[in-house]
Simulated assay, not measured.
Amino acid sequence: MQSETIGNATLETWTVEEVAEAWAKNEIVLIDVRTPQEYMFEHIEGALLLPMPFFNADKLPGQSDKRIVFHCGSGVRSDKIARAAIEGGLTQIAHMEGGFGAWKAAKKPYIGTNMATGAPSRVEG
């Protein structure tokens, strides 16, 4: 995990392995900031959708029980959202390095679209 101090806040960049481990232990809330279309086509099972255009740092839950980790397709949008969350007053926030593309490259499970039926289906990676 890499961390960057911004004022009195800490922005963490987690690897896919760190996110997957914390996710499996239910230690984090994983928030997908991609578009609804991207999410519908494929997403990490259980991740919440909060598209970047609708982001409002004031509406985020506290992190007393679970850390918030953002992710997007490549890590660019989630980094921007994490920085916006810090600007909104959060003092510790994280995002996943490499985004969903890195998650798939690491062969982690996700929900994809069965192209034959159009139905969602679990992909084991």
Rank of each mutant, 00 (worst) to 15 (best):
Pro36Phe: 09
Ile44Lys: 04
Ala94His: 05
Val19Ser: 02
Thr117Gln: 14
Ser74Pro: 01
Asp58Leu: 14
Arg77Gln: 07
Phe41Met: 14
Tyr39Ile: 03
Ile68Thr: 04
Asn26Arg: 08
Met40Asn: 14
Ile111Phe: 10
Pro36Asn: 01
Gly99Lys: 04
Phe41Gln: 11
Pro61Glu: 09
Gly46Phe: 00
Pro120Asn: 12
Ala57Glu: 08
Ser78Leu: 10
Val29Pro: 00
Leu50Ser: 05
Lys108Ala: 02
Gln37Trp: 05
Ala47Val: 00
Thr117Cys: 13
Ala119Ser: 15
Val69Met: 10
Lys80Thr: 12
Phe54Gly: 12
Val123His: 09
Gln37Ser: 06
Val16Thr: 09
Asn8Met: 12
Thr5Glu: 13
Pro120Tyr: 15
Leu50Pro: 00
Glu38Tyr: 10
Gly101His: 06
Thr91Ile: 12
Glu42Trp: 05
Gly118Lys: 04
Met1Lys: 08
Ala105Thr: 03
Glu42Asp: 14
Ile44Pro: 01
Pro51His: 07
His95Gln: 07
Gln92Ser: 11
Val76Leu: 05
Met1Gln: 10
Leu50Tyr: 13
Asn26Val: 00
Val19Arg: 02
Thr117Met: 12
Glu97Asp: 14
Arg83Lys: 15
Cys72Met: 05
Ala106Trp: 09
Tyr39Val: 02
Ser74Tyr: 08
Pro51Leu: 06
Gly98Thr: 08
Gly89Pro: 05
Pro36Arg: 02
Met115Pro: 01
Asn8Lys: 14
Ile31Gln: 03
Asp79Tyr: 14
Pro61Gly: 11
Glu97Met: 11
Val69Ile: 11
Pro51Glu: 08
Arg83Thr: 09
Val16Asp: 00
Pro53Gly: 02
Arg83Cys: 06
Pro53Ala: 02
Glu97Ala: 13
Thr113Tyr: 08
Gly46Cys: 00
Lys104Pro: 01
Gly99Glu: 02
Ser121Asn: 13
Gly101Arg: 10
Glu27Met: 08
Arg67Pro: 06
Leu11Lys: 08
Ala106Val: 08
Thr10Glu: 11
Gly99Gln: 01
Leu11Gln: 06
Glu42Tyr: 04
Glu21Met: 11
Thr5Arg: 15
Thr91His: 15
Thr10Trp: 13
Gly75Met: 06
Ile6Arg: 13
Lys108Gly: 00
Lys25Ile: 02
Thr91Gln: 15
Val69Asp: 09
Ala94Met: 04
Asp79Ile: 12
Arg77Pro: 04
Glu38Lys: 03
Val16Trp: 04
Gly99Trp: 04
Ala94Gln: 01
Lys66Glu: 00
Thr5Val: 15
Ala47Glu: 00
Phe100Tyr: 05
Phe100Gly: 00
Thr10Tyr: 12
Ala20Thr: 02
Arg77Leu: 10
Ala85Asn: 03
His71Ile: 00
Pro61Val: 09
Leu60Ser: 06
Asp79Ala: 15
Glu18Phe: 04
Gly62His: 14
Glu18Val: 00
Gly73Val: 07
Ala9Trp: 13
Met52Trp: 06
Gly112Ile: 07
Val76His: 11
Ala47Leu: 03
Phe100Val: 07
Glu124Cys: 06
Asp32Phe: 04
Thr35Pro: 06
Glu42Ser: 14
Phe54Asn: 15
Gly62Cys: 09
Arg34Thr: 12
Thr113Arg: 07
Val16Ile: 08
Ile68Phe: 04
Asn56Ala: 15
Phe54Met: 15
Gly46Arg: 03
Gln63His: 07
Gly118Val: 05
Ala57Thr: 07
Glu97Phe: 12
Ile28Val: 10
Ile6Ser: 03
Lys104Ile: 10
Trp23Gly: 03
Lys66Ile: 01
Lys59Asp: 15
Arg34Glu: 06
